[in-house]
Design a protein around this nucleic acid. Structure first.
Length: 405
RNA sequence: GCCGGAAUCGUGUAGUGGCAAUCACAGGAGACUGUAAAUCUCCCGCCUUUCGGCUUCGUAGGUUCGAGUCCUACUUCCGGCA
């Protein structure tokens, strides 16, 4: 029988947990570390699969919650699985819907950029609560039509098997930094841990039952908020289980991301891949890779791109700024992406001001290429032993402008 | 030439005797980390870092305690008729 996933480690960074490797899935290989763009609804917004492939993306991540609501996982199964449905021939990850439990339930920033205790300033604008959690699962209202639904670990796995992604994630509870320690403990003991057991059991049953499909891999998701003991405890608990790899999840304090990843990776089995969920800011990526993360996904490059913010070596800038109105040269001359190779900054500026659809496509191509290439370059720097020099020079340049003011 | 209507922020408008400047667009800036996001927030007459101060409803008069609002003339524009 075909194996769901093979992971081979190649090079390691001395004195740290970083490594390079190859992930082999039924739909192809991923050289790690790697950035995995997010196509929530089985499409990376504004891009064709060919355009996405041209950014260097090795895989994409889709979402169980969104595809369950529309068009439905049974339909995707009948279509022959999500690879055929969306015409992406490479590896595909699917998220469990655990993130939506949090975002529909309380709605807050995943990464809090502040020292000390978070306050209300960092919460998103209050919206009507759409999700209610209990120890068996989550009851929630569809954000599309208000209809009531219920997710359990079992249903999440059934959805993810219907979707047919190569790598799936266990259904977990993403707590917030606003929850107190007692709640974090309760969340791990009453939900994330038992849900991981139930997810794995259902996943193994489905893999056996659905032998007509390529075998799928399952990653357990480590939680524990900003607490070292809980992160280690959760990683140890899940690490002892028969997962194919691990998701590093949860709410994070910006300044403590590297430590969080290290706590988890020191406890997790070394020979299994680790996927950092929802991270893509350059400084965070360096911190996470240095401390043992192998793959990343994030909506940010696509979303901020659609909103007019483009990555450069000198930080993220809004292309709608007046200074670009008559800049008749590439937005970033150092960039090898399709957008920078073929269009001027002035043209991009114009497309955004005129609200033209092509603005989304060109900006998304640029940003996805930027982050994919950054992680590719980090991979190369681990192999040739220049990781720390690369990190220092990149971050100095990236934050030299934006952090002053 | 005559009759009628109109004139308020860059633009289109709200305000029809009681602290002018509502809403939208345009413009400027910012935010965005397992996508309720081609979204959201702030600024947008002048001065002031803030607090606050000042100005202003086409022009000139008039009525009134008080006029963007009522009256008169003028200017410009838009209709209609010649």
């Amino acid at each position: 029988m075909q194996t769901a996933l093979r992971f081979t480690i190649h090079d390691r960074l001395e004195g740290a947990l970083a490594r390079t490797g190859t992930l082999v899935t039924p739909h192809g290989e991923i050289q790690t570390p790697a950035f995995i763009p997010v196509g929530t609804k089985a499409t990376l917004k504004a891009l064709t699969p060919e355009q996405l492939l041209a950014t260097g993306a090795q895989a994409v991540l889709v979402n169980a919650y969104h595809l369950y609501l529309r068009p439905g996982h049974e339909l995707i199964d009948r279509a022959g699985g999500v690879h055929a449905f969306m015409n992406w021939k490479g590896p595909i990850f699917s998220d469990s819907g655990g993130f939506q439990v949090m975002s529909l339930g309380v709605g807050f920033k995943k990464v809090v950029d502040m020292e000390g205790e978070p306050d209300q300033q960092s919460t998103k604008k209050k919206k009507d609560k759409l999700a209610w959690i209990d120890n068996d699962g989550v009851r929630f209202k569809s954000h599309l039509d208000g209809s009531m639904h219920r997710f359990t670990p079992e249903l999440s796995m059934q959805i993810q098997h219907g979707i047919g992604a190569d790598i799936t994630f266990a259904f977990d509870e993403l707590t917030t930094l606003f929850h107190d320690y007692a709640y974090q403990v309760e969340s791990l003991e009453q939900r994330t841990h038992p849900w991981a057991v139930r997810s794995l059991t259902e996943h193994q049953r489905l893999n056996a039952e659905r032998s007509h499909r390529p075998p799928q891999a399952l990653f357990g998701v480590v939680q524990g908020a900003d607490h070292e003991d809980l992160r280690r405890q959760c990683a140890k608990f899940l690490g002892a289980m028969d997962f194919d790899g691990y998701g590093l999840g949860g709410a994070l304090r910006k300044s403590n991301i590297g430590n969080n990843v290290r706590w988890m990776c020191e406890e997790l089995p070394e020979d299994k891949p680790r996927h950092m969920l929802g991270i893509s800011e350059p400084d965070d990526i360096f911190d996470c890779i240095e401390n043992g993360a192998d793959t990343f996904d994030c909506v940010s490059p696509a979303r901020v791109g659609r909103n007019g913010a483009l990555y450069t070596q000198n930080g993220r800038v809004n292309i709608t700024r007046l200074e670009f109105k008559e800049k008749f040269e590439p937005f970033d001359a150092a960039c090898d992406c399709y957008t920078c190779q073929n269009f001027t900054a002035a043209y991009l500026h114009h497309l955004f001001k005129a609200d033209e659809l092509l603005s989304n496509t060109l900006a998304t191509i640029h940003n996805e290429r930027f982050v994919v290439k950054l992680v590719d370059d980090i991979r190369a720097s681990i192999s040739d032993g220049t990781f720390y020099e690369f990190k220092t020079s990149f971050l100095q340049s990236y934050y030299s402008h934006s952090k002053i003011e």
